[in-house]
Nucleic acid binder design. Structure first.
Length: 558
RNA sequence: GCGCCAGUAGCUCAAUUGGAUAGAGCAACGGCCUUCUAAGCCGUAGGCUGAGGGUUCGAUUCCCCCCUGGCGCGCCA
């Protein structure tokens, strides 16, 4: 489950500090947070703590002296550590014994596909809302980044013991839907009269023509030449339904699953929007000016007040979102995560203001903002515009470079960084492409295991292998690295930094490839063969678990 | 003008709640396939972390101020 080595070191440090407090050598009120880190330079140990440096100020003692006291009070250091040394200006460095390191293999083999999971989240209910596009066309690669981050963050949170609900919110109300209706309507009319005018602001993509053809197939020419409100209403409902089906299909093909689909329109039909406005009004956050209804968000951290009901009586998108977040809270979530593109980041303060106005804890809502994606093909940047019909759809992208590559590229970089998606690189099936590098490692290990089994080696008892035979530096490094996986998953979930997972896998399989080229796993030395098989099998499980969190397949052969 | 994000090797990016000597991949150059998959490995080279101040034992990381790029700043969504 957790990183056993790390938690043992923490326990020992806590015990040592407790003892030191008891006998008066450290004058502390309580146990401080235990900072543990992995030094860059192995000469500084496998783990290190700068605890004494942090405590120096409050204790008013020299850090080296504090380090000395802590080390003196550590119990049975020899069971886990080779040595513990103090280093100026006050670090305590821990060097693990090889036996302590190899324990991770047994842990991985025993826990299998649960290795790396934890109960950190202790069942807290979290709602993760992502993608949430207008149903006006297929998903673009801009949505793709968000879909991937949201999907993988949800996976990581679940793996860490949170109860996650993945949610998609359709903005199926408002002006955009009328424009969509008019666009499909115009394309439909053009099937009968090629001179029929197309609206200037209409959606120009081919999928609009497809929808028009679908109308003709299902309804024939009964709307030909008609432009009355009932006709347009039919086209609106038809088009929304068709677009939602399109998006559902895209998400399914992309391997993203949702638990709940919320419709903006049903918040209206169920009166939720009115209720939300009334609640805000009751608490004095609402006023009227110039015939419109305003939310006083400037009093709660936003830069200005926001209109929620326009002077023509129509509610704004924001009004729906207020009701929606109230709804999330009413459904009993402990917290809600919204994932948005950078073009919506200005929305964060007003949404936070809503949370405050409704009287929810400030941290009920967490907004994750990811930077934009640009798309390069043949060295040329492609501008995306749904209305111009010049977008690159997620579906096209997946078809072109494959699911694994698409997902991996979207995940590789921190959400804060702008992403340049280079199609030419993504299409290369070579070592330039990190996805193949990883999958190749998995296939290689699978091949080793197969080879061993064909040689008649009993793979049923890998857990019983004599792991003390694993003494090569590459083997030790690999084992140490595997033990870090649970911490990486936890960091990915807790810091909402999913790119840590791809980085971890790349590093891990890099160690493996080097090891593979230097040492043979299957040899005439049977005990050593078993030990090495246990090692690579553990690695294979970790790679598979990690790829699983990313929604990427781990192939047996390539 | 105001706000959010970014600025690290030629290019694309990492860097463990502030840690010790800032790391990978690509591109360049030189090596490794009668042995479990060469979609691989090993080696060489590459840096004033955009500039300047500050905080402290210690700053790529935090604060201030500039510069550059992206994105916002609607009774649109």
């Amino acid at each position: 489950m957790e990183n056993l080595i790390e938690s043992k070191i923490r326990e020992k440090l806590v015990a040592a500090i407790e003892k030191a407090i008891e006998d008066g050598s450290l004058k502390l009120e309580s146990i401080p947070d235990i900072y543990l880190e992995i030094p860059n330079n192995p000469e500084n140990g496998d783990y290190a703590t700068s605890l004494s440096l942090k405590l120096a100020k409050t204790l008013r003692m020299p850090p080296m002296k504090i380090a000395g006291i802590i080390v003196e009070h550590l119990e049975e250091p020899n069971s886990l550590f080779d040595k513990i040394v103090m280093a100026p200006p006050g670090f305590i460095n821990f060097f693990l014994r090889e036996r302590a390191v190899s324990a991770v293999i047994k842990q991985v083999l025993a826990e299998g596909d649960r290795y790396g999971s934890s109960m950190q989240g202790s069942g807290k209910k979290v709602n993760v809302e992502f993608v949430s596009s207008n149903p006006t066309g297929p998903l673009t690669i801009g949505h793709g980044r968000q879909a991937t981050i949201g999907d993988v963050l949800s996976n990581a949170l679940s793996f860490c013991g949170y109860e996650v609900t993945r949610e998609y919110y359709y903005n199926d109300a408002g002006k955009q839907m009328n424009m969509l209706a008019q666009s499909v309507h115009a394309r439909y009319q053009q099937l009968y009269d090629s001179a029929y005018p197309f609206p200037d602001e209409g959606y120009k993509g081919d999928y609009i023509r497809d929808a028009a053809v679908d109308v003709r197939e299902q309804e024939g020419d009964k709307f030909a030449g008609k432009n009355d409100p009932e006709t347009l209403d039919f086209f609106r409902r038809f088009a929304v339904r068709e677009m939602i089906a399109l998006i559902d299909r895209d998400l399914k093909n992309y391997g993203v699953r949702f638990d709940v689909w919320s419709l903006e329109s049903s918040l209206y039909s169920e009166g939720k929007v009115e209720q939300a406005i009334e609640l805000l009004r009751k608490h004095g956050h609402i006023y009227e000016k110039d015939g419109a209804v305003w939310f006083r968000s400037s009093a709660l951290g936003d830069e200005k007040d926001r209109v929620i009901v326009r002077s023509n009586g129509e509610k704004t998108y924001f009004a729906g979102d207020i009701a929606y977040h109230m709804n999330k809270h009413e459904r009993g979530f402990d917290w809600a995560i919204d994932i948005w593109g950078a073009d919506h980041h200005g929305y964060v303060p007003r949404m936070k203001a809503v949370i405050k106005a409704l009287g929810y804890p400030d941290d009920f809502l967490e907004c994750i903002v990811h930077q934009m994606v640009s798309f390069m093909r043949d060295g040329q940047e492609i501008k995306m515009s749904t209305r111009q019909g010049q977008f690159v759809t997620l579906d096209e992208l997946v078809r072109e470079v494959g699911l694994a590559v698409t997902r991996f590229f979207f995940l590789m970089r921190s959400a804060d960084s702008h992403l340049v998606f280079d199609l030419d690189l993504a299409k290369k099936e070579s070592n330039e492409n990190p996805v193949y590098y990883i999958q190749y490692a998995h296939a290689r290990i699978s091949s080793i295991v197969k080879h061993a089994s064909e040689k008649g080696i009993d793979l049923g008892n890998l857990a019983g292998a004599d792991l003390s035979l694993l003494t090569e530096p590459e083997e030790i490094d690999l084992m140490k690295y595997l033990s870090r996986f649970p911490s990486v998953v936890e960091a990915a979930a807790e810091k909402r930094e999913v790119h840590r997972i791809p980085n971890f896998i790349l590093e891990a399989v890099g160690l493996f490839h080097a090891y593979y080229n230097k040492s043979r796993v299957v040899s005439e030395d049977e005990p050593l063969t078993l030990a090495r098989l246990a090692l690579v099998e553990a690695l294979r499980l970790v790679v598979r678990n990690a790829l699983g969190l990313l929604g990427i397949e781990a192939p047996e052969r390539m």
